[in-house]
Amino acid sequence: MSSQKNILIVGTGGVGAVFGSRFQYAGARVSVVCRSNFNKVKESGFTIRSLKFGNTVFVPDCVISAKNDQAFDSVFYDYVFVSTKSLPNVENPALAILPFINSPDTIIVLLQNGIGVEDPFSILFPNNPILSCVVRVNSTQIEPSIIQHGTLCCLLYNFYTSLKSPKFSDTILKEFDAFLKLAKVESIISPNIQKERWLKLAWNAAFGSISVLSGGKDGKSLAEDIYTCTLMRDTMREVFAVGHAVLSEPLVDGSIEESIESYVSLVLTRPNAVYPSMLYDYQFKRPMEHQVIIKNPIDLAEKAKVSTPLLKTLYALLISIEGGRL
Rank of each mutant, 00 (worst) to 15 (best):
S2C: 02
L8G: 03
G14I: 07
G16T: 03
A17E: 05
V18E: 01
R22P: 11
A28N: 00
A28C: 05
S31W: 13
V32D: 04
V33Y: 02
V33E: 05
C34T: 01
S36G: 07
K40Q: 14
V41H: 01
F46P: 01
T47C: 09
T47Y: 11
R49K: 15
S50I: 15
L51S: 15
G54W: 12
P60M: 10
D61T: 03
N68C: 12
Q70T: 12
F72K: 09
D78H: 13
V80N: 08
S83P: 01
P88C: 04
E91N: 15
N92T: 09
A96R: 05
N102R: 12
N102V: 05
L111H: 07
N113E: 05
G114S: 07
S122G: 13
I123A: 15
I123K: 15
L124W: 05
P126V: 10
P129M: 06
C133S: 09
V134M: 13
V137I: 14
V137M: 07
S139Y: 11
Q148I: 01
F159D: 00
Y160N: 09
T161Y: 04
S162M: 08
S162N: 15
K164N: 11
K164D: 11
S165Y: 14
S165A: 15
I172E: 04
K174I: 13
K174C: 11
D177R: 12
D177T: 07
A178V: 02
F179M: 00
F179C: 01
L180F: 03
K181W: 04
E186K: 14
E196V: 02
R197S: 01
W198Y: 10
L199W: 01
K200Q: 08
N204Q: 06
F207W: 14
V212A: 12
L213C: 08
G215I: 14
D218H: 15
K220M: 09
A223S: 15
T228E: 13
R233M: 09
M236N: 04
E238L: 00
V239G: 00
V239R: 00
A241F: 06
V252S: 01
I260N: 00
I260G: 05
Y263P: 00
T269I: 03
Y280P: 02
F284I: 05
K285R: 15
K285N: 14
R286H: 10
I293P: 02
N296M: 05
P297C: 06
P297Y: 07
L300D: 02
K305D: 12
V306R: 04
S307G: 11
P309A: 14
Y315V: 01
S320F: 12
R325D: 08
